[in-house]
Design a protein around this nucleic acid. Structure first.
Lengths: 188, 188
DNA sequence: CATGTTGTTCAAGTTTTTTTGAACAAAATG
DNA sequence: CATTTTGTTCAAAAAAACTTGAACAACATG
Protein backbone atom coordinates (compact mmCIF):
# COMPACT_ATOMS: atom_id res chain seq x y z
CA UNK A 1 0.00 0.00 0.00
CA UNK A 2 1.08 3.61 0.16
CA UNK A 3 3.46 2.97 2.98
CA UNK A 4 5.47 5.96 2.02
CA UNK A 5 2.56 8.19 2.73
CA UNK A 6 1.06 6.69 5.84
CA UNK A 7 3.91 5.11 7.78
CA UNK A 8 6.89 6.32 9.58
CA UNK A 9 7.31 9.44 11.55
CA UNK A 10 4.51 11.40 10.00
CA UNK A 11 1.40 11.37 12.09
CA UNK A 12 -1.09 9.06 10.40
CA UNK A 13 -3.53 11.76 9.54
CA UNK A 14 -1.22 14.47 8.34
CA UNK A 15 -1.54 15.17 4.65
CA UNK A 16 1.38 16.71 2.84
CA UNK A 17 -0.06 20.09 2.04
CA UNK A 18 1.67 20.45 -1.28
CA UNK A 19 0.66 17.03 -2.52
CA UNK A 20 -3.08 16.60 -2.65
CA UNK A 21 -3.94 12.94 -2.30
CA UNK A 22 -6.56 12.61 -4.98
CA UNK A 23 -7.19 8.98 -4.46
CA UNK A 24 -8.37 9.06 -0.87
CA UNK A 25 -10.34 12.29 -1.15
CA UNK A 26 -13.61 11.56 0.46
CA UNK A 27 -16.43 11.80 -2.08
CA UNK A 28 -17.81 15.31 -2.56
CA UNK A 29 -21.46 15.92 -1.88
CA UNK A 30 -22.37 15.80 -5.54
CA UNK A 31 -20.48 12.55 -5.88
CA UNK A 32 -22.47 11.03 -3.07
CA UNK A 33 -25.62 12.07 -4.93
CA UNK A 34 -24.38 10.40 -8.10
CA UNK A 35 -23.47 7.25 -6.20
CA UNK A 36 -26.91 7.24 -4.67
CA UNK A 37 -28.42 7.60 -8.11
CA UNK A 38 -26.55 4.52 -9.30
CA UNK A 39 -27.46 2.54 -6.21
CA UNK A 40 -31.06 3.10 -7.13
CA UNK A 41 -30.52 2.35 -10.78
CA UNK A 42 -28.78 -0.91 -9.91
CA UNK A 43 -31.51 -2.02 -7.59
CA UNK A 44 -34.21 -1.25 -10.09
CA UNK A 45 -32.31 -3.34 -12.61
CA UNK A 46 -32.16 -6.21 -10.16
CA UNK A 47 -28.46 -5.80 -9.42
CA UNK A 48 -26.94 -5.63 -5.96
CA UNK A 49 -26.57 -2.28 -4.33
CA UNK A 50 -22.80 -2.51 -4.08
CA UNK A 51 -22.50 -2.73 -7.85
CA UNK A 52 -24.26 0.59 -8.18
CA UNK A 53 -22.15 2.05 -5.44
CA UNK A 54 -18.84 1.04 -6.98
CA UNK A 55 -19.86 1.97 -10.49
CA UNK A 56 -21.15 5.33 -9.28
CA UNK A 57 -17.87 6.14 -7.60
CA UNK A 58 -15.83 5.23 -10.66
CA UNK A 59 -18.24 7.13 -12.88
CA UNK A 60 -17.49 10.28 -10.92
CA UNK A 61 -13.74 10.04 -11.12
CA UNK A 62 -11.43 10.95 -13.93
CA UNK A 63 -8.61 8.81 -12.64
CA UNK A 64 -8.63 5.07 -12.27
CA UNK A 65 -9.07 3.80 -8.72
CA UNK A 66 -7.48 0.78 -7.09
CA UNK A 67 -9.45 -1.65 -5.01
CA UNK A 68 -8.17 -0.43 -1.68
CA UNK A 69 -9.17 3.11 -2.58
CA UNK A 70 -12.65 1.96 -3.48
CA UNK A 71 -12.89 0.09 -0.20
CA UNK A 72 -11.82 3.13 1.74
CA UNK A 73 -13.97 5.66 -0.12
CA UNK A 74 -17.13 3.61 0.08
CA UNK A 75 -16.50 1.92 3.42
CA UNK A 76 -17.26 -1.50 2.04
CA UNK A 77 -15.53 -4.79 2.68
CA UNK A 78 -12.80 -6.34 0.64
CA UNK A 79 -15.11 -9.15 -0.34
CA UNK A 80 -17.81 -6.85 -1.67
CA UNK A 81 -15.31 -4.82 -3.59
CA UNK A 82 -13.72 -7.86 -5.16
CA UNK A 83 -17.00 -9.49 -6.11
CA UNK A 84 -18.58 -6.23 -7.17
CA UNK A 85 -15.71 -5.39 -9.46
CA UNK A 86 -15.81 -8.82 -10.96
CA UNK A 87 -19.50 -8.49 -11.80
CA UNK A 88 -19.00 -5.02 -13.19
CA UNK A 89 -16.21 -6.23 -15.40
CA UNK A 90 -18.35 -9.09 -16.58
CA UNK A 91 -21.13 -6.66 -17.41
CA UNK A 92 -18.64 -4.54 -19.33
CA UNK A 93 -19.41 -1.63 -17.04
CA UNK A 94 -15.87 -1.34 -15.75
CA UNK A 95 -12.48 -1.72 -17.38
CA UNK A 96 -9.21 -2.31 -15.63
CA UNK A 97 -5.80 -0.92 -16.27
CA UNK A 98 -2.35 -1.71 -15.03
CA UNK A 99 -0.14 1.30 -14.67
CA UNK A 100 3.45 0.38 -15.46
CA UNK A 101 5.56 -0.18 -12.42
CA UNK A 102 2.46 -0.54 -10.27
CA UNK A 103 1.27 -3.84 -8.91
CA UNK A 104 -2.24 -2.66 -8.33
CA UNK A 105 -5.02 -3.16 -10.78
CA UNK A 106 -6.93 0.08 -11.31
CA UNK A 107 -10.49 0.51 -12.50
CA UNK A 108 -12.37 2.97 -14.66
CA UNK A 109 -16.06 3.16 -15.48
CA UNK A 110 -17.30 2.48 -18.98
CA UNK A 111 -19.39 5.51 -19.81
CA UNK A 112 -20.61 4.67 -23.30
CA UNK A 113 -24.28 3.94 -22.83
CA UNK A 114 -24.22 1.68 -25.86
CA UNK A 115 -21.65 -0.54 -24.20
CA UNK A 116 -23.46 -0.54 -20.90
CA UNK A 117 -26.75 -1.53 -22.41
CA UNK A 118 -25.15 -4.14 -24.63
CA UNK A 119 -23.39 -5.69 -21.66
CA UNK A 120 -26.52 -5.72 -19.59
CA UNK A 121 -28.54 -7.33 -22.34
CA UNK A 122 -25.88 -9.89 -23.02
CA UNK A 123 -25.45 -10.90 -19.40
CA UNK A 124 -29.02 -10.56 -18.19
CA UNK A 125 -31.50 -10.76 -21.03
CA UNK A 126 -29.88 -13.23 -23.39
CA UNK A 127 -29.43 -15.99 -20.83
CA UNK A 128 -33.13 -15.75 -20.08
CA UNK A 129 -34.02 -16.01 -23.72
CA UNK A 130 -31.84 -19.10 -23.94
CA UNK A 131 -33.48 -20.65 -20.94
CA UNK A 132 -36.81 -19.82 -22.53
CA UNK A 133 -36.05 -22.00 -25.52
CA UNK A 134 -35.29 -24.95 -23.29
CA UNK A 135 -38.43 -24.46 -21.31
CA UNK A 136 -40.57 -24.27 -24.40
CA UNK A 137 -39.07 -27.51 -25.63
CA UNK A 138 -39.80 -29.12 -22.31
CA UNK A 139 -43.37 -27.92 -22.52
CA UNK A 140 -43.78 -29.42 -25.98
CA UNK A 141 -42.50 -32.73 -24.69
CA UNK A 142 -44.94 -32.78 -21.82
CA UNK A 143 -47.77 -31.97 -24.18
CA UNK A 144 -46.85 -34.73 -26.57
CA UNK A 145 -47.12 -37.18 -23.69
CA UNK A 146 -50.50 -35.84 -22.61
CA UNK A 147 -53.48 -37.91 -23.64
CA UNK A 148 -55.76 -36.31 -26.22
CA UNK A 149 -58.48 -34.15 -24.80
CA UNK A 150 -59.45 -30.64 -23.75
CA UNK A 151 -56.43 -30.18 -21.56
CA UNK A 152 -54.00 -31.11 -24.30
CA UNK A 153 -55.72 -28.85 -26.80
CA UNK A 154 -55.65 -26.00 -24.36
CA UNK A 155 -51.99 -26.65 -23.67
CA UNK A 156 -51.17 -26.53 -27.36
CA UNK A 157 -52.85 -23.17 -27.70
CA UNK A 158 -50.80 -21.87 -24.80
CA UNK A 159 -47.63 -23.21 -26.29
CA UNK A 160 -48.37 -21.32 -29.48
CA UNK A 161 -48.82 -18.09 -27.57
CA UNK A 162 -45.62 -18.54 -25.61
CA UNK A 163 -43.65 -19.27 -28.75
CA UNK A 164 -44.97 -16.14 -30.34
CA UNK A 165 -44.05 -14.09 -27.30
CA UNK A 166 -40.59 -15.52 -27.29
CA UNK A 167 -40.13 -14.61 -30.92
CA UNK A 168 -41.31 -11.07 -30.33
CA UNK A 169 -39.12 -10.51 -27.30
CA UNK A 170 -36.18 -11.75 -29.30
CA UNK A 171 -36.92 -9.10 -31.87
CA UNK A 172 -36.73 -6.30 -29.37
CA UNK A 173 -33.20 -6.81 -28.16
CA UNK A 174 -31.39 -5.89 -31.37
CA UNK A 175 -33.56 -2.81 -31.72
CA UNK A 176 -32.75 -1.60 -28.27
CA UNK A 177 -29.07 -1.95 -28.94
CA UNK A 178 -29.48 -0.10 -32.19
CA UNK A 179 -31.48 2.77 -30.78
CA UNK A 180 -29.11 3.29 -27.89
CA UNK A 181 -26.17 2.89 -30.21
CA UNK A 182 -27.17 5.93 -32.20
CA UNK A 183 -25.84 9.24 -31.03
CA UNK A 184 -23.58 7.67 -28.53
CA UNK A 185 -21.36 10.67 -28.70
CA UNK A 186 -23.05 13.18 -26.50
CA UNK A 187 -25.03 15.51 -28.69
CA UNK A 188 -23.60 18.91 -28.00
CA UNK B 1 -63.25 -21.91 3.52
CA UNK B 2 -65.17 -24.00 1.01
CA UNK B 3 -67.57 -25.29 3.59
CA UNK B 4 -70.28 -25.38 1.02
CA UNK B 5 -68.36 -27.76 -1.16
CA UNK B 6 -66.98 -30.10 1.41
CA UNK B 7 -69.69 -30.33 4.03
CA UNK B 8 -72.88 -32.03 3.14
CA UNK B 9 -75.38 -30.19 5.24
CA UNK B 10 -75.36 -26.75 3.71
CA UNK B 11 -77.18 -27.13 0.47
CA UNK B 12 -77.49 -23.53 -0.72
CA UNK B 13 -73.98 -23.38 -2.04
CA UNK B 14 -73.46 -26.92 -3.13
CA UNK B 15 -72.57 -27.37 -6.74
CA UNK B 16 -74.70 -29.59 -8.94
CA UNK B 17 -72.87 -32.85 -9.46
CA UNK B 18 -73.50 -32.89 -13.18
CA UNK B 19 -71.44 -29.77 -13.42
CA UNK B 20 -67.77 -30.74 -13.51
CA UNK B 21 -65.84 -28.64 -11.07
CA UNK B 22 -63.27 -27.28 -13.48
CA UNK B 23 -61.95 -24.76 -11.07
CA UNK B 24 -60.44 -27.03 -8.49
CA UNK B 25 -58.87 -29.42 -10.97
CA UNK B 26 -55.34 -29.78 -9.82
CA UNK B 27 -52.96 -28.34 -12.41
CA UNK B 28 -51.93 -30.76 -15.12
CA UNK B 29 -48.26 -31.48 -15.58
CA UNK B 30 -47.95 -29.14 -18.52
CA UNK B 31 -49.64 -26.44 -16.50
CA UNK B 32 -47.10 -26.85 -13.74
CA UNK B 33 -44.39 -26.41 -16.34
CA UNK B 34 -46.00 -23.21 -17.59
CA UNK B 35 -46.37 -21.91 -14.06
CA UNK B 36 -42.75 -22.66 -13.43
CA UNK B 37 -41.86 -20.82 -16.59
CA UNK B 38 -43.66 -17.73 -15.34
CA UNK B 39 -42.13 -18.01 -11.90
CA UNK B 40 -38.77 -17.72 -13.58
CA UNK B 41 -39.86 -14.95 -15.87
CA UNK B 42 -41.19 -12.98 -12.92
CA UNK B 43 -38.04 -13.35 -10.93
CA UNK B 44 -35.86 -12.30 -13.81
CA UNK B 45 -38.02 -9.22 -14.20
CA UNK B 46 -37.56 -8.41 -10.55
CA UNK B 47 -41.08 -9.37 -9.57
CA UNK B 48 -41.99 -11.67 -6.69
CA UNK B 49 -42.31 -15.33 -7.38
CA UNK B 50 -45.94 -15.49 -6.38
CA UNK B 51 -46.87 -13.04 -9.12
CA UNK B 52 -45.46 -15.39 -11.69
CA UNK B 53 -47.17 -18.32 -10.08
CA UNK B 54 -50.59 -16.72 -10.09
CA UNK B 55 -50.25 -15.29 -13.54
CA UNK B 56 -49.03 -18.61 -14.86
CA UNK B 57 -52.02 -20.42 -13.49
CA UNK B 58 -54.47 -17.93 -14.95
CA UNK B 59 -52.60 -17.98 -18.24
CA UNK B 60 -53.23 -21.71 -18.51
CA UNK B 61 -56.95 -21.56 -17.87
CA UNK B 62 -59.75 -20.65 -20.19
CA UNK B 63 -62.16 -19.86 -17.39
CA UNK B 64 -61.82 -17.12 -14.84
CA UNK B 65 -60.71 -18.26 -11.39
CA UNK B 66 -61.78 -16.90 -8.02
CA UNK B 67 -59.31 -16.15 -5.28
CA UNK B 68 -60.11 -19.19 -3.19
CA UNK B 69 -59.55 -21.41 -6.22
CA UNK B 70 -56.19 -19.83 -6.83
CA UNK B 71 -55.26 -20.33 -3.19
CA UNK B 72 -56.23 -23.96 -3.35
CA UNK B 73 -54.61 -24.74 -6.69
CA UNK B 74 -51.30 -23.12 -5.85
CA UNK B 75 -51.26 -23.83 -2.13
CA UNK B 76 -50.46 -20.26 -1.26
CA UNK B 77 -51.84 -18.11 1.52
CA UNK B 78 -54.74 -15.73 1.35
CA UNK B 79 -52.39 -12.84 1.90
CA UNK B 80 -50.13 -13.73 -0.98
CA UNK B 81 -53.07 -14.27 -3.28
CA UNK B 82 -54.66 -10.98 -2.39
CA UNK B 83 -51.47 -8.99 -2.73
CA UNK B 84 -50.34 -10.85 -5.79
CA UNK B 85 -53.60 -10.26 -7.57
CA UNK B 86 -53.51 -6.61 -6.67
CA UNK B 87 -50.04 -6.23 -8.18
CA UNK B 88 -51.03 -8.15 -11.27
CA UNK B 89 -54.07 -5.97 -11.75
CA UNK B 90 -51.95 -2.89 -11.32
CA UNK B 91 -49.54 -4.20 -13.93
CA UNK B 92 -52.46 -4.80 -16.24
CA UNK B 93 -51.51 -8.49 -16.37
CA UNK B 94 -54.81 -9.64 -14.93
CA UNK B 95 -58.38 -8.50 -15.37
CA UNK B 96 -61.25 -9.19 -13.05
CA UNK B 97 -64.82 -10.06 -13.79
CA UNK B 98 -67.95 -10.31 -11.74
CA UNK B 99 -70.31 -13.00 -12.89
CA UNK B 100 -73.89 -11.92 -12.32
CA UNK B 101 -75.39 -13.35 -9.21
CA UNK B 102 -71.97 -14.25 -7.89
CA UNK B 103 -70.31 -12.40 -5.08
CA UNK B 104 -66.87 -13.61 -5.96
CA UNK B 105 -64.48 -11.64 -8.06
CA UNK B 106 -62.96 -13.80 -10.77
CA UNK B 107 -59.68 -13.28 -12.58
CA UNK B 108 -58.37 -13.86 -16.07
CA UNK B 109 -54.89 -13.35 -17.48
CA UNK B 110 -54.22 -10.63 -20.00
CA UNK B 111 -52.50 -12.44 -22.84
CA UNK B 112 -51.84 -9.62 -25.28
CA UNK B 113 -48.10 -9.16 -25.09
CA UNK B 114 -48.50 -5.53 -26.07
CA UNK B 115 -50.62 -4.88 -22.99
CA UNK B 116 -48.30 -6.81 -20.74
CA UNK B 117 -45.23 -4.95 -21.89
CA UNK B 118 -47.03 -1.61 -21.76
CA UNK B 119 -48.16 -2.28 -18.22
CA UNK B 120 -44.74 -3.35 -17.13
CA UNK B 121 -43.11 -0.31 -18.62
CA UNK B 122 -45.69 2.00 -17.16
CA UNK B 123 -45.44 0.59 -13.67
CA UNK B 124 -41.76 -0.23 -13.53
CA UNK B 125 -39.79 1.79 -16.02
CA UNK B 126 -41.66 5.08 -16.09
CA UNK B 127 -41.51 5.66 -12.34
CA UNK B 128 -37.77 5.24 -12.51
CA UNK B 129 -37.51 7.72 -15.34
CA UNK B 130 -39.53 10.16 -13.26
CA UNK B 131 -37.34 9.65 -10.26
CA UNK B 132 -34.37 10.16 -12.54
CA UNK B 133 -35.53 13.65 -13.40
CA UNK B 134 -35.78 14.57 -9.76
CA UNK B 135 -32.38 13.18 -9.02
CA UNK B 136 -30.80 15.05 -11.89
CA UNK B 137 -32.33 18.27 -10.62
CA UNK B 138 -30.99 17.56 -7.18
CA UNK B 139 -27.57 16.97 -8.66
CA UNK B 140 -27.66 20.29 -10.49
CA UNK B 141 -28.55 22.04 -7.27
CA UNK B 142 -25.68 20.50 -5.40
CA UNK B 143 -23.34 21.46 -8.18
CA UNK B 144 -24.50 25.05 -8.22
CA UNK B 145 -23.65 25.26 -4.54
CA UNK B 146 -20.21 23.79 -5.04
CA UNK B 147 -17.34 26.26 -5.09
CA UNK B 148 -15.64 26.69 -8.42
CA UNK B 149 -12.80 24.29 -9.08
CA UNK B 150 -11.86 20.97 -10.53
CA UNK B 151 -14.47 19.05 -8.64
CA UNK B 152 -17.29 21.29 -9.81
CA UNK B 153 -16.11 21.17 -13.42
CA UNK B 154 -15.92 17.39 -13.24
CA UNK B 155 -19.37 17.25 -11.70
CA UNK B 156 -20.80 19.31 -14.51
CA UNK B 157 -19.35 16.97 -17.10
CA UNK B 158 -20.95 14.04 -15.29
CA UNK B 159 -24.25 15.81 -15.13
CA UNK B 160 -24.14 16.29 -18.89
CA UNK B 161 -23.52 12.61 -19.42
CA UNK B 162 -26.34 11.56 -17.12
CA UNK B 163 -28.76 13.92 -18.81
CA UNK B 164 -27.87 12.50 -22.17
CA UNK B 165 -28.39 8.95 -20.91
CA UNK B 166 -31.72 9.88 -19.47
CA UNK B 167 -32.80 11.31 -22.78
CA UNK B 168 -31.71 8.22 -24.65
CA UNK B 169 -33.41 5.83 -22.28
CA UNK B 170 -36.56 7.86 -22.62
CA UNK B 171 -36.38 7.35 -26.35
CA UNK B 172 -36.32 3.59 -26.05
CA UNK B 173 -39.57 3.08 -24.22
CA UNK B 174 -41.92 4.19 -27.00
CA UNK B 175 -40.02 2.08 -29.48
CA UNK B 176 -40.31 -1.01 -27.39
CA UNK B 177 -44.03 -0.50 -27.09
CA UNK B 178 -44.26 0.00 -30.80
CA UNK B 179 -42.22 -3.04 -31.76
CA UNK B 180 -44.13 -5.30 -29.44
CA UNK B 181 -47.37 -3.73 -30.50
CA UNK B 182 -46.87 -4.85 -34.07
CA UNK B 183 -48.11 -8.26 -34.95
CA UNK B 184 -49.83 -8.68 -31.66
CA UNK B 185 -52.15 -11.08 -33.33
CA UNK B 186 -50.24 -14.27 -33.56
CA UNK B 187 -48.52 -14.44 -36.93
CA UNK B 188 -49.34 -17.58 -38.94
C1' DC C 1 -79.26 -6.30 12.16
C1' DA C 2 -77.05 -10.84 13.04
C1' DT C 3 -74.65 -13.89 10.10
C1' DG C 4 -71.84 -15.76 6.60
C1' DT C 5 -68.93 -14.73 2.74
C1' DT C 6 -65.29 -12.31 0.42
C1' DG C 7 -61.33 -9.63 0.37
C1' DT C 8 -57.53 -6.59 2.68
C1' DT C 9 -53.93 -5.45 5.91
C1' DC C 10 -49.98 -5.98 8.51
C1' DA C 11 -46.92 -7.92 12.24
C1' DA C 12 -44.34 -11.86 12.67
C1' DG C 13 -42.04 -15.73 10.60
C1' DT C 14 -39.49 -17.63 6.73
C1' DT C 15 -36.59 -17.63 2.88
C1' DT C 16 -33.39 -15.51 -0.15
C1' DT C 17 -29.91 -12.36 -1.15
C1' DT C 18 -26.08 -9.58 0.06
C1' DT C 19 -22.20 -8.33 2.88
C1' DT C 20 -18.48 -9.22 5.79
C1' DG C 21 -13.94 -10.75 7.18
C1' DA C 22 -10.69 -14.19 7.92
C1' DA C 23 -8.21 -17.73 5.54
C1' DC C 24 -6.15 -18.68 1.40
C1' DA C 25 -3.77 -18.12 -3.25
C1' DA C 26 -0.85 -15.61 -6.44
C1' DA C 27 2.64 -12.90 -7.63
C1' DA C 28 6.26 -9.41 -7.01
C1' DT C 29 10.22 -7.95 -4.24
C1' DG C 30 14.53 -8.04 -2.19
C1' DC D 1 12.89 -18.41 -0.83
C1' DA D 2 10.96 -15.65 3.01
C1' DT D 3 8.26 -11.60 3.02
C1' DT D 4 5.08 -8.26 1.59
C1' DT D 5 1.45 -6.76 -1.26
C1' DT D 6 -2.66 -7.64 -3.88
C1' DG D 7 -6.66 -10.07 -4.86
C1' DT D 8 -10.12 -14.19 -4.35
C1' DT D 9 -13.10 -17.37 -1.93
C1' DC D 10 -16.49 -18.87 1.05
C1' DA D 11 -18.84 -19.76 5.56
C1' DA D 12 -21.25 -17.15 8.62
C1' DA D 13 -23.71 -12.79 9.84
C1' DA D 14 -26.73 -9.21 8.43
C1' DA D 15 -30.12 -7.28 5.67
C1' DA D 16 -33.80 -7.39 2.48
C1' DA D 17 -37.64 -9.51 0.35
C1' DC D 18 -41.41 -12.52 0.51
C1' DT D 19 -45.07 -15.29 2.66
C1' DT D 20 -48.17 -16.46 6.12
C1' DG D 21 -52.27 -16.22 8.92
C1' DA D 22 -55.06 -13.97 12.16
C1' DA D 23 -57.55 -9.82 12.84
C1' DC D 24 -60.21 -6.71 10.54
C1' DA D 25 -63.32 -4.35 7.07
C1' DA D 26 -66.93 -4.46 3.67
C1' DC D 27 -70.85 -6.03 2.16
C1' DA D 28 -74.53 -9.10 0.71
C1' DT D 29 -78.19 -12.10 2.52
C1' DG D 30 -81.97 -13.68 5.02
Amino acid sequence: MNMAIYSGIMSPYSIPSSNVDHSSNQPAEWELAVIDLFINAAQSAGLPKSLGQIYGLLFCRDDALAMDEIIQLLSISKGSASQGLRSLRQLGAVNSQYARGDRKERFVAEIRLRKLVAGFLKEQAEPHMEKGITRLEHLRELLSEEEDGDSKARGKRRETILSSWHRQMGRILPWVKMIVGKSDKLPK
